[in-house]
């Protein structure tokens, strides 16, 4: 019985591997290159969803962008906005899409090595990461693209 299960699992894994191999997956955190403060191409190869991005932006376990930044677009539904970082009102007038993507991915590389802003798409090189987050980035590629799409609406 056990052997049959193993064989079945191996078969499934093979199928899974082929499926993954067939589609071009998102660019992994370790593969992303920031050039001159920019990441030109979408991490997923697809444009993100601004509607979803708005949700990830406020979500305390994901972007939690409001922890540090204020955002007038959310003044009505979110009472507490941070003051630690610049307001994101009009952020799309100050940065273009490639710059916004680079800042979300890794602001220490894109902007300033001393910024308090966490890198949202980096999965290694941390000191004492909590076990649940070891080897993981805060956001996945799709969530980064969704947030970038949302930030682009803040004009």
């Amino acid at each position: 019985m056990k052997r049959v299960l193993c064989a079945a699992t191996a078969g499934l894994l093979a199928v899974a591997a082929i499926t993954v191999g067939a589609s071009a997956g998102p660019i992994a955190p370790g593969e992303v290159k920031i050039d001159d403060g920019k990441i030109t191409a979408s991490l997923t190869g697809q444009p993100g969803s601004a509607v979803k991005g708005r949700e990830w932006f406020a979500n305390r376990k994901l972007g939690n962008c409001l922890a540090c930044h204020s955002n007038s677009d959310m003044a009505k539904e979110e009472q507490f906005h941070g003051e630690v970082a610049p307001s994101l009102d009009g952020v799309a007038d100050r940065w273009d899409e490639a710059q916004l993507r680079a800042i979300v991915v890794n602001a220490k590389q894109a902007l300033n090595p001393d910024t308090l802003m966490p890198a949202f798409y980096r999965d290694s090189g941390y000191t004492r990461p909590l076990k649940d987050f070891e080897g993981k980035a805060i956001l996945n590629a799709e969530q980064v693209e969704d947030i970038v799409a949302y930030l682009k609406t803040l004009k």
């Binding site: 941070g82 630690v84 308090l116 890198a119 000191t127 990461p129």
Partner: peptide
């Protein structure tokens, strides 16, 4: 940590802020 912050980042550089 994954947020890559120090005590100083909040309590020295940004105290008084929300």
């Amino acid at each position: 940590g994954q947020l890559d912050m120090s005590c100083a980042g909040c309590h020295e550089a940004n105290y008084g802020k929300m």
